[in-house]
Structures are given as C-alpha cells and as structure tokens.
Design a protein around this nucleic acid. Structure first.
Lengths: 229, 229
DNA sequence: CGTTTGGTTGATAGGAATCAACTTCAGTGG
DNA sequence: CCACTGAAGTTGATTCCTATCAACCAAACG
C-alpha cells in the first residue's frame, strides 16, 4: 500500500484518534485491492476473516433464502462492512459483491479484534460505526414494514434528489434491477411504480430522473425524519 | 436498589468484566422501577436520556408512520434496549412499551457515555451487545423481505417450539395482535395463516400451540440458520 | 448486423389489507 | 349466579398491492 493511501485511511473517523502503533499493526497485515464490477467478495455463511472497507466504488450486500435474493444495503466510500461478524468472530449473514469497480481495504479479522481489545479509542470508533449501522438497519426495517413499494420509491427519489443538490434533477446511482431489489420489489414492479409516479411529476429517462412536482410527490411519500434521515 | 439486585445486575455479560468503581458510578444514578403492562416507556423521536435494561418482564419496540404501527422487536430479560440512541446521543428511532408488568433498570445516558469512554472492558461489552442487536436486525430484515407471512409464522412456531423444549407443544408468549404486528401482518391475516397451517399439523387453542407434523411444517417453512439462528 | 442485457408492458394469479359482522371469553357488577 | 360489557379473535367479502410469466422493446456491444 502506498504512503498516501495509508495517510488517507488514517483520516477516517474510525481510525482518526487511535494510537499510531496500533494503527500500524492493523495496516501491516492489510491488503488494498481493486475488484471488477459484479465480483462476489463474501458469501453468507462463511466465517468472517477480514474486515472490509470500501475506499472507492460501491458494494452491494445481499441475502438469499427460498431461491429468492434481496439487496439489504448499498455500501459507499468510505465505510466498513460486515463489522459485526468480524467482531463476534462469527459467520457472515450477508453476501457482498461489487456493484462497480471498487477499491477495498481488507483488514485481518483477528488483528481487528486484538487491537480493539487494547485500544479504547479504536473500540469507541467501532462502537459508533456499529451504532450507525444498527440505526440504518432499523430505519430500513421501518421503511419495509410501514410503506408500500410506491411510497418507498417516492421517498427514495426525494432523498436522492436532496443528496444530489435538491435541484429537482437527479441520477440513479445503480441500475434499476439493483434498485428494485434494494427497495424490496421486482424489476417489473419498479417499472410500474415509476409509471404511477408520473402523475406526481416524476419523469424518467434512463437513469436520469426529474422531479417537477415535489409538493405532490411529498404528499404521497410522507417522508419521516425517523426513517429517511 | 437492593444489594442483591445490584449483585444480579453486576453478573450481566455487559457489566461482568468492568471496573468496580465504574460499575458503581453507573449504578449510582440509576433507577430500578416496576411498570404495569401497556405502559409507554419511550416515544420515538425523543432524545435518549436513559439506557434501559429489562430485568424482568417484556418490552415491545414499535414504530409508527403513515398512521400505521409495527412491532420491530420484543426485548426479554436480561437485555438492554435503545443502546444505539444512547451511544450516539441522538433521538430514539422506536417507541417502547411494556408488554407485561416489567422491572426495568434506567441508567442515565451521560453516565453510560462517560464510563464507556474510560472503561475499555465496558466499551467492549457494549460493542458485543450492539453487534448482537445489529445481527438480529439483519435477520429480521431478511425474514421480512424474503418470506411470505405464512412462512414467517411457520418459522416462528418452529423456533418457539425449539426454545420451549422441542416437545411439539408450545405456548405463545404474547397475544395474537402483538404477534401479528411482530410478524408484519394484520391480526386477520395471522388468523388465516394459522388456518393455512392447520393442514401442516398446527393446532391452535388460545395461546397453546401443538405441532403434530413437524416434517411437513419444516418443508413449508424452510428454516435457515442465517435467519432463524 | 445479430445478440445480449436491461428495461418495459400486459395478463393473470397470489398475497395481504380493509371493512364489516360475528363469536368467544374474561371481567364486572347487579 | 347471571347478564352485561368490552376486548380479542375469527370469518367472509372485497379491494389493493405485489409477484409471476410471457412477450416485447431498445440501447449496447461485439
């Protein structure tokens, strides 16, 4: 790993206030690797051997059962994933694959656990990271249990537009199949949901979305701070 | 709080290995209280002022949106709840109410955060507790997104029977309205789901359930270690 | 070019919510 | 003791949401 990359990683909230020596110990055994899109990084059920950190790109966390598959989370830079499995020294509950070409830092799980035990600052950093993930997961669960598909899409679009500058024009970060899976619906239903939203000023052209009637859309979506953030 | 109660709390995995002085500091400002059934302990959106620990009884974590309500988790002794909100010094994402008469320990949030910062053992305890909750939340999400209502009920019953001794006879720990909300369906639909399961050997009499054909039920339910534990 | 991949549309069926009526049962009070 | 009450649970009819299967379209790519 290059010095400048190490320095960049050091800046992350997770590592910022930890001891220099402990940081070195973590980085020592780590690998920074580039993966092509669509590559399976982790399979659910496997033991957790590395803590993964997305430095660049995007990773999709998916789960399978009953011959069905669903996307649970999309992880964007700079964030860890499968932290809980590493921490509990247990198997992964989700599979992970790159959504696009991605640079990922792999930190050996036992190193993480060892450093965590002796570096309080690092443990606190982990605690905050994990608390964030827990809250995201709860929000996701509420989104899923309390809203219909159309409502989830509407809220997704409003949030997306806000994140991209609230200009009323935004661009989907993933293909629609992935989005459908993330929103808990089939691609066919996502397509119909976009159709339904047309009468609320949502125009779709490929991945480009324009929201020309945010008021009506918001009435339909009923966004909630405790779900959408 | 009585000495024997303090001693019992000290035994919890969360506190077991922490420093005596720090434990005292935590317990000092805490209250142990008994609440009647159905009492609202916490409202979603409120700032987190106390870490709650169920010593005895049962607490239901619910969330509301769109004039709908759903039960996200049931917390049984001895477990904490709303840990993440306390940790992040943020608002609660869920409301909490007692399902039955319950004894609950209330630990001031700022004390928790202070002790956490200086007691590495306690921080590690928290980290494990939180990691457990995260994984429960992910399992719940998978259960919700990958299964139908009848499948969720079937798996719930199989797990319940296992927990209660795998005798083929078990007893629902909550009323059916609560169970329906927890399983993400309406009471009417839960009733029908029980009806559907009759042909798989599920007999219902009030809260008493008997599973006379576990093989067929299991074929329908398709339990997964990575969802049902 | 044709072939693939991603996306859309239509028809149909299945899963789940809603509304309304009815039953059961526990608790209350006459 | 029994009738009343209210809550919990069930059942039926209907509507709505969602998945499935199939066909079709279109941009992307060798």
């Amino acid at each position: 790993m290059r010095d400048e990359e190490i320095a960049a990683i050091r800046e992350l909230a997770l590592f910022a206030s930890m001891d220099e020596k402990n940081f070195d110990e973590l980085v020592q055994g780590s690998y920074l690797q580039i993966f092509p899109p669509g590559l399976q990084l982790i399979s659910e059920g496997d033991p957790a051997d590395f803590l993964h950190i997305v430095i660049e790109g995007c990773v999709e966390l998916v789960a399978t059962a009953n011959k069905r598959e669903t996307t649970l989370f999309m992880i964007e830079p700079v964030k860890t994933f499968i932290l809980a499995a590493v921490l509990k020294d247990d198997v992964y509950l989700m599979s992970a694959r790159t959504a696009i070409r991605s640079r990922i830092l792999l930190v050996p799980a036992d190193a993480v656990r060892q450093v965590m035990a002796k570096d309080g600052e690092f443990a606190l950093g982990m605690l905050h990271e994990l608390a964030n993930y827990y809250r995201v997961s709860v929000r996701t669960l509420k989104n899923q249990k309390l809203r219909t598909g159309v409502e989830r899409l509407a809220n997704y679009l409003i949030t997306l537009d806000t994140l991209q500058g609230a200009s009323g024009v935004c661009k989907l970060p993933h293909d629609k199949r992935t989005l459908a899976s993330y929103l808990g619906m089939t691609p066919e239903n996502l397509s119909r949901a976009f159709g339904t939203l047309a009468q609320y000023g949502v125009e779709v052209s490929g991945r480009k979305i324009s929201l020309s009637n945010l008021e009506d859309l918001t009435v339909l979506a009923k966004p909630e701070k405790l779900i959408d953030g």
